[in-house]
């Protein structure tokens, strides 16, 4: 292949390769192979939606957000409160959850784009803390520390009712995850997605190209907040409970850890990181939570020092090494 066509080949593309299509069948396989632990699958896929959204701002645009749980929790409360008020239809409930978070994200984005890294980090953290405190104070609406429960969700398309085993929930979340992934894949392989990566790589050059950086970042942040809200809505609908910890800084940190564990700026990192994190968490559930925190902290430090790029990055490096070895062995 000429350098010209191979360079064009390397441009980001939304078109799935065959191996990707196969990979997306894995969760479906898990549905049939591990039918007694569907709840775990549902929560992995729910969080994966949120972590994908975080990857857009962090992995692509390079904004470190420590406040994404605000959008997650607001989405969850929106869907939960709608159901409490009798709005039981799940799809519109989920979309409304996304819309409310999107609106909040739009407002927040004006604050976030001001200042540099550290200021941004603090502002996102501050937004998260303010929303948490608000929910805590408005306990007559949100249920405060007790959370929101005792609501029911209607059947999907008016046909498929949520069942005790989580079968319907599983297919519901799986479908939404695929749609969200396709949407984000489209975004990151568009000119807009390229400009986000450019902002991450060299923000100081952008004005010299005639680009307005703040507007792009606001758009990315708003979109990310909306998708995170959808994830929150899914959580509320599939568990029929909203706890105040869905808004906590700890939850924001979890998202961050999942993403970094899998690898930033490549979408699949978000999926793999979330899966690894959630399965480990489930497996070690009997462990004293304090020790879980200890290992989590150690793991974070280790990833930063030794495994930049997370699981996906390490996998790529391994693949690269194997390829060059083979190339040397058979010249």
């Amino acid at each position: 292949m000429s350098p010209r066509s191979s360079a064009i080949e390397r441009l980001a593309s939304p078109r799935p390769r065959p191996v990707e299509v196969l990979a997306w069948l894995l969760p479906a396989l898990a549905f049939f192979l591990v039918p007694d632990n569907l709840a775990l699958g549902v929560s992995i896929m729910t969080y994966a939606v949120a972590v994908l959204a975080l990857d857009l701002v962090l992995g692509y645009a390079g904004i470190v957000s420590l406040g994404h749980a605000a959008f997650f929790g607001v989405g969850a409360y929106t869907a939960g409160l709608l159901a409490v008020q009798g709005w039981k239809e799940p799809l519109t409930g989920m979309l409304l959850a996304g819309a409310v978070s999107l609106a909040l994200g739009f407002l927040a984005s004006f604050l976030v784009v001001r200042g540099k890294d550290l200021t941004r980090l603090m502002v996102t953290l501050g937004i998260g803390l303010v929303v948490y405190e608000l929910a805590n104070r408005l306990s007559s609406v949100t249920g405060g520390m007790d959370g929101l429960s005792g609501f029911e969700i209607g059947p999907i398309f008016g046909v498929f009712s949520f069942d005790l085993y989580g079968r319907t929930a599983w297919w519901y979340v799986y479908g939404v995850l695929i749609l969200v992934f396709v949407l984000l894949r489209l975004v990151v392989s568009s000119p807009f997605g390229l400009s986000l990566r450019a902002i991450r790589e060299g923000v100081s050059r952008m004005p010299a190209l005639g680009a307005s950086v703040d507007h792009r970042l606001r758009t990315a942040f708003t979109l990310s907040a909306g998708v995170t809200g959808i994830a929150g809505g899914l959580l509320a609908q599939t568990t029929q409970f909203v706890g105040i910890d869905s808004l906590s800084v700890g939850r924001s940190a979890d998202f961050l850890v999942m993403l970094v564990l899998g690898g930033t700026g490549r979408l699949y990192g978000a999926l793999i990181g979330t899966t690894v994190f959630m399965i480990a968490h489930d497996y070690l559930a009997d462990m004293n939570p304090v020790y879980w925190e200890f290992w989590m902290g150690l793991l974070l430090m280790a990833v930063v020092l030794f495994a930049r790029g997370g699981v996906v990055g390490a996998g790529r490096r391994l693949l690269q090494t194997v390829k060059t070895k083979f190339a040397r062995a058979a010249p």
Partner: peptide, 17 residues
Amino acid sequence: LAILERKNLAENWFRPL
């Protein structure tokens, strides 16, 4: 990217690169 910026196409997010 520089060309897309010049042509005001860089904010387009639904058409693939």
